[in-house]
Amino acid sequence: MKKIAFCFLLSLLMFQPVVLHAQSQTEEAMVYIKGSRYLPLYGRDSTVVEVKDFKMDVYPVTNTQFEAFVKKYPEWQKSKAIKLFVDTSYLSNWKNDFELKDSEQPNSPVTYVSWFAAKAYCECQDKRLPTVDEWEYVAMADETTKDARIKPSYNEKILSWYEAPRSNENSIGLNPKNYWGVYDLHGLVWEWTLDFNSVLITGESRKDVDKDSDLFCGSAAINATDLMNYAAFMRYAIRGSLKAKYSMKNLGFRCVKDINEKTNENF
């Protein structure tokens, strides 16, 4: 009996630091987002959607973090990632499998990553990509308010960023944090979302105006709720034009985590 107890204590001592360490690494940079119902630009039936409580990464994933990931999961290295999951520009700002080009900053958000790579990164940390609704929910906050979409200053700020060139080369965390304590949702890079392919606009006006469009079944149901929200419209248009294996210079990602572990499976 004593022996068992001893073993137990020993193993606790041995493993605890490891377990604690691993936990703090994934937990520390996340903040709690209290869910609610809100009206997104493109919702279900153009009505409110419900966002459940979840945790979101405070910063987008950086080059350094992604480098650690490809070291651990070689199948996502620049030369090894398979064609099904990435296009030819995957990590094209890297010199080789492990090194950034000299012009790039380790603390900049990782870009030139496909949806598949972003999804794998999050899953390997027991997280997932945020849904469009979740991302937009957190992103409609400014520094002081949960829903700043009616403030003219909110839209102006975002639009002025959309005009600023090469913001992807900046470091993370330089923009002010928003109401939730999340940085860089605006002002740095666009971000992948889990269900980006649920945005059914083609970006081509001739195809979009026709509600009976043969391209999409049920396309009449998808109408924008607030056409004045031009910044959001641009985000949805980008999502609608993406394919999952694309990688782009100004497209990065961050991860979220469900509060209830079980629902992770559903996505």
């Binding site: 279900r44 598949f116 649920s198 059914l200 079944c217 149901a221 294996k245």
Partner: peptide, 21 residues
């Protein structure tokens, strides 16, 4: 799988979906 096919779809109500053809 849908992303491999570049198929877009969205649940618009519990029994209805929009999707690319």
């Amino acid at each position: 799988f849908a992303n491999v096919l570049s198929v877009k779809y969205k649940e618009i109500s519990p029994i209805d979906f929009s999707h690319s053809n």
